[in-house]
Write a protein that binds this DNA or RNA. Structure first.
Lengths: 144, 144
DNA sequence: GGCAGTCGAAACAGTAATGGTTACGACAGA
DNA sequence: TCTGTCGTAACCATTACTGTTTCGACTGCC
């Protein structure tokens, strides 16, 4: 599976903003977050833009601009982040429709779809169990 | 997520071979399976080659050659198929290592990895619960 | 009013995975 | 020897992700 790092980077950014605000700062810049995540500020802005569409963060423009949390870390789960940055399904069905004249070709898509739906439901439950507050706590608990 | 159809096509192929053998045939050709799955025989041979490496199917060469099941459908689970055709992890960590001098950059990877490990474990349990026999039964149960 | 810092967004390149296709050698049974 | 099928390499098109550059928009401050 061609795994991507979007969920990881998004969680990183949220934890970073949360910690930074806890230290008394108003907003965090994409530049700062990009330095911590070792990537490009535009990559961060793109991801945070999706999180803003989902209502997780807010952005200010102009001098002294930057990003701030729209909600408490405690009220955000990894499922919220996942839904904001990962639109597609985990598994795909056939790229081209299978032969409807074949018994297997006819029945395989509903059968697999039902299985995939169940799996995604479990994944979502797992993701919903972890808040960003949990993530930040675990991050800070890692020994130096 | 750039979902692929490898698990779907592999399950399709196995169900097809299983049903075909149940109808009294010795082996199935990649040509037949490709027709049912509406794809190219080489795509099927590539996938079945991975399933053969995993000990799920066998192939014969020469005239009258083709593919047959190496085990009963009842003894194969979607987890076996998943492991055979999907090597990578579900979620990736940072492409480039985050800043180790930053608290978040330092702790984020172990924290996220632990979460991802738990999620993959759940996924594997889900996949292990479904046998290919279940899949074929569900496929045949889909109304025309 | 102008300056400076930051976001917003478009555009482009590089990389990788996936899937489709062609081609051809290897193999084995008739 | 012929034929049908696998085994495999090679190539291409498409797509997604990531990184990068660029420039306009916005806003606070001087």
């Amino acid at each position: 599976m061609s795994a991507n790092s979007r969920l990881t980077i998004a969680a990183h950014a949220l934890a970073w903003i949360g910690l930074y605000q806890r230290q008394g700062h108003e907003v965090a810049t994409s530049e700062q977050i990009a330095t911590s995540a070792n990537t490009n500020p535009v990559v961060i802005r793109r991801l945070l833009g999706e999180l803003r569409n989902a209502g997780l963060v807010e952005s200010r423009r102009g001098v002294g601009a930057g990003w701030s949390l729209a909600r408490d870390l405690e009220s955000m789960t990894l499922l919220d982040v996942y839904e904001a940055v990962e639109p597609g399904p985990l598994f795909a069905l056939h790229r081209a429709a299978p032969d409807p004249g074949c018994v297997v070709g006819h029945g395989i898509q509903p059968a697999m779809q039902r299985i995939y739906d169940g799996i995604e439901e479990t994944l979502r439950r797992d993701l919903a169990r972890v808040t960003l507050e949990d993530v930040l706590r675990d991050v800070l608990a890692v020994p130096r």
